[in-house]
Design a protein around this nucleic acid. Sequence first.
DNA 1: TGAAATTTGTTTACAAGGAAACAATCTCCC
DNA 2: GGGAGATTGTTTCCTTGTAAACAAATTTCA
Lengths: 155, 155
Amino acid sequence: MDMTVRTKEEVALGRLEDAPGFLLRMAQLKVYEQFFDQVGDHRIKPGEFSVLWVISCNPGIRQSLLGQRLMIKRAHMTKLIRALEEQELVSRRIPDADRRAVELSLTTKGRAAVEAASQWFFAYEQSLGANLSASERERLIGLLKKFIGIKATGL
Amino acid sequence: MDMTVRTKEEVALGRLEDAPGFLLRMAQLKVYEQFFDQVGDHRIKPGEFSVLWVISCNPGIRQSLLGQRLMIKRAHMTKLIRALEEQELVSRRIPDADRRAVELSLTTKGRAAVEAASQWFFAYEQSLGANLSASERERLIGLLKKFIGIKATGL
DNA sequence: TGAAATTTGTTTACAAGGAAACAATCTCCC
DNA sequence: GGGAGATTGTTTCCTTGTAAACAAATTTCA
């Protein structure tokens, strides 16, 4: 006799199976996996894209505010912005009103990069959740927005 | 006149606001933040707990299978298991049937640790999504399960 | 005013996690 | 049987992200 499990589907998860934190982690890992399958690695990564996108939506946004909104810690944001600056996608400006702060904008090259990347980025986002029906997908998006505290319109 | 945003809520996200991959990332970051606020850092981390828990649900499970189920890469699993072994929570056994493989079980100490940790772990999981109604929370759990490919019972 | 406390960003040192190359073992198929 | 190829786990190196200490500027408030 042999009690050991053999396939991934046979592995018992017990109560973990209904734990939202665990499920969110698994969902995010699956999304990342799908990203590398689909988009490959020779382009802007999702994290970088979100930073560029939000700067393009909010020109002159302060680094600290951008970090708060995207839940990126200050130390990491410094590195991200430096990397984007070295690629000449982002420009930094110290405002006179507060000389500790940094205001971020896209360069011309940065705007072009966001324009190009948003094509495949949103196509990839659209492809996520293909195993859900359209209404389930909408409902998931609405619930996630509410979960993280973005006003869920309608739902 | 001054066009710059000042508070987190004013930051425009544009189309990103409806991108499931982005929302999942934000949700997971929020969960992690809440974990450290609530549980503190002097205990087992969520990732470690999930490994211990799944071993306890599937005694003798092979390392590779555990990794597949929890979407943990082999290289990282090696480190995790070694750390747990050094804490004498997990024991490794090379089966005769396949001497490449490793079968994992909990030690007595490991079983006690899971028993104790599951108290606060599931309480913490229960506290997630407190800003959702009970039915919304259930629906979110069901949709996440379907999203990641665990059979969603009912929903 | 002017010292104490706060905010903003940077630096440094570290933890979590992944990719690629590797060694050992096992499976397949001639 | 025995080689080609696949699987399993480990090691090494690298990327991503965090924590803590710090410097500079700003705000608070006696």
